[in-house]
Structure formats: structure tokens, C-alpha cells
Write a protein that binds this DNA or RNA. Structure first.
Lengths: 202, 202
DNA sequence: CCTACCGATCGGTAGG
DNA sequence: CCTACCGATCGGTAGG
């Protein structure tokens, strides 16, 4: 934890970090304020010096730690001369992220299961301007792409990782052949082949 | 409700139906036994004549109403001369199901968010034999398919609907152009193009 | 003696 | 930031 922060802000961050870890593991309603306080090293009532309610903690976390921050950062940082390279590199970066913190997509699932998505519209308003540059990138290379609306392309690409994540969890930690290493690379390959007019021979 | 059932069984089914509806709307920990009882037309304590605990209710529901029943029934019932027709018909049936009961995939999200997937492995054991015939179908038409492991194909197809569902919720009920009618048809089109060696001209 | 269920209440914990 | 505590409600069980 950053020692240079004012003490109050440090405590606030401790609470957020504790809540984030607990919510991802137990869900929102499965986590008590007492658990959060204990993990943050506080007395139960002290959280309310920093947040008005349990819901308020979720609202902050959903804004500040929504997976879209991570996904957009990846999309911004990866290079690629062609749209194909760009998508492959982005997918590879997503694989790496999912390995590093396998649960970071869970934020979205918690919002849907426990809040019925009530915080989603305002989040979309925030995201939308940040998505436009990438839609632009698809549009600028439209000649290489099949005739599919660009927003659908983008949605389909993002959906790929949810598809991979949820089916992975559905298959569980079984040894069935259906669950094998490298599947995501193959998911991406199916997507690229489905989206590009022609694929380079590789 | 079936009047021919013995009264005890009828009550049991009322409880399961009430719990199912409430869990899909509020999540597991967000639903109280009292709410379930009220919706089933019972006194709060009476549930315990039929189930030992709240968890026991979830375990039954996760077994009996898991989306895989629905998905496998669709796959069994739809026809199609070619693998392409089969996949398109199956996808169309899934679209219809998602329109009729938009939340039926939520079961899986609740299990992941609120139970960390502890009930998944035993469910997979039950499913696996029922999946094999469809894998077989892919294998029998392998000559029409690109060189992708069949289990990955199947997983990718199932994942398509989760991808569509979750990105739909992420986009919320906004009027943004990214969310448009017919997107799922286009998702399926991308998948088919990504999976088939050649697509019929249409 | 069984089932299905009641009103009331158990020990603990929820958010505040 | 803590201790102490509230109104209410939690999941689960009592006797009849």
C-alpha cells in the first residue's frame, strides 16, 4: 500500500481492496460488512466513516475496477500493422490477463446476478466515447473485413473472452478432452476466420 | 400446476418454482427463505418439511433446471441436412428461447458468483455422455469443417450464446447503434464462416 | 402412525 | 476510528 497517501485515503483504499477481493470470492450479498472491516483491519462500524452504505462500495468498485478499464488499456497498448495482427495481439494480451487474474471478468457477472444490471447504463455512457477509436480502426480497414456491421464485430470480439471464460468454468476443472490448453487461441482463430475476407497463410 | 400430483409433491414443486424465479431475479444470497415461502403460498417454516436447507434447494435447481437441459433438448430436436443447417437451426432455436425466457442462462452465473462453481464438476459428469452424440455429428462431417478440434468447435458454439447474452447486458438498454436487432444472427454467421471450409452462397 | 403444515420462536447476524 | 448497540431480519427449528 502506498505510504505517501494521507491516512484517511489509505484506509479508504484498504476497504475497497478488501471488499473487491471478498466480492469476487463470495459475491456481494454473500459478503458482510464485518468481513470487509476485518480484512481491512477495522472495527465493523468504521467503514461508515468512508462509505455511506454497502451498496456505495459496490458502486465505486463497479466504476473503478470494471473489466472494461483493463480491456481498453490492452486495446490501446497493443500494436499491429494489420487488423489481423492487432486482434491477435489483443487476444494474446487478454489471455495473459486472464491467467494473471482469472476472476477480473466476474465484476460483470456480480452486477448482473445481484444487481440486475442497474449500474450498467451509466457505465456504458462512460465507456462509449472510449470505444469509438477502436470502431474507427475497424472501419478504416473495412476492405479487409467481411460485410458485418462494425459494432457487431467489436461486440463479437469482446464477447469472445466471456464465451471462453464462462464455458471454461462450465467445464470445470475436469480432465475432459474438451478442455485443453490453447483453446482460446483457437477461439480467436475461429473469430478471425469468420471476420476476415482472407486469412494470411501461416 | 399439475393437479394429479400428490399434494406433497405439488408443494415441493411450488417451492422450487418460487425459488427459481426469485434466485434469477435477486441472486441466491439476496433471496430469503421467507420470500420463497411467501411466493410458494406457505408459512416460512414449512419449506423445511421438503428441503433440509436453502443450499439444498439450490443444489436441486442447479441439477434440474440447468440451461444445459434446454440447450441439449434444442440440439436433439432441430434437424438439418448439413452441419451448417443444423447449426443455423440450433442457433435460431436458441434465439427463440432467449426471447421467451431471457434469464435462463443466469443459473450458470449465479453458480459462479455465489458458489464459486463448487457444483459444476458433478454436473459436468452428468452432461458429458449427453454431449458425445453431438461431437459425433461434428466428427462425421469433419470434411466440411476447418481443422479445429471438435470439442473446441462445440465449446465455441455454446459459448456464442453466453457471449451474446453477456455483451447484450453490458450494453444495457441503451439506444447505441452497437446494440441492434439481428445481432445474434450475425454472431452465428461469424461463427459459421469461421468454422466451415466454405459457406454456401446465400 | 403418516403427511403436510401452522404460529411462534430459536441463536446469530444483517446493515446502519 | 472504536465500543456498544438499534430495529429488522436472517436461516433454521420448536411443539402441536
Amino acid at each position: 500500500m502506498d505510504e505517501t497517501l494521507p491516512k484517511g485515503e489509505r484506509t479508504r483504499q484498504n476497504i475497497l481492496q478488501a471488499a473487491y477481493a471478498l466480492f469476487l470470492n463470495q459475491g456481494f450479498h454473500g459478503t458482510s460488512m464485518r468481513q470487509i472491516a476485518a480484512r481491512a483491519g477495522l472495527a465493523p462500524g468504521s467503514i461508515y466513516n468512508h462509505f455511506n452504505s454497502k451498496d456505495a462500495i459496490w458502486e465505486i468498485l463497479f466504476q473503478e475496477r470494471h473489466p472494461y478499464h483493463h480491456v481498453l488499456r490492452i486495446l490501446r497498448e497493443v500494436g499491429g500493422d494489420t487488423i489481423e495482427d492487432f486482434l491477435r495481439n489483443a487476444a494474446r494480451a487478454m489471455v495473459y490477463s486472464l491467467e494473471q487474474q482469472p476472476d477480473f471478468l466476474k465484476m460483470m457477472f456480480i452486477e448482473i446476478v445481484e444487481f440486475n444490471g442497474v449500474h450498467v447504463p451509466s457505465m456504458v455512457k462512460t465507456i462509449y466515447p472510449q470505444i469509438l477509436p477502436f470502431l474507427q480502426r475497424f472501419i478504416s480497414e473495412e476492405d479487409k473485413l467481411r460485410d458485418i456491421p462494425v459494432p457487431v464485430l467489436f461486440r463479437s470480439f469482446v464477447g469472445l473472452f466471456f464465451s471462453y471464460y464462462i464455458t471454461g468454468l462450465m467445464l470445470g476443472n475436469t480432465d475432459l478432452p474438451i478442455f485443453q490448453e490453447g483453446s482460446l487461441e483457437q477461439f480467436v482463430d475461429i473469430f478471425l476466420h469468420g471476420v476476415l475476407k482472407q486469412l494470411e497463410v501461416r
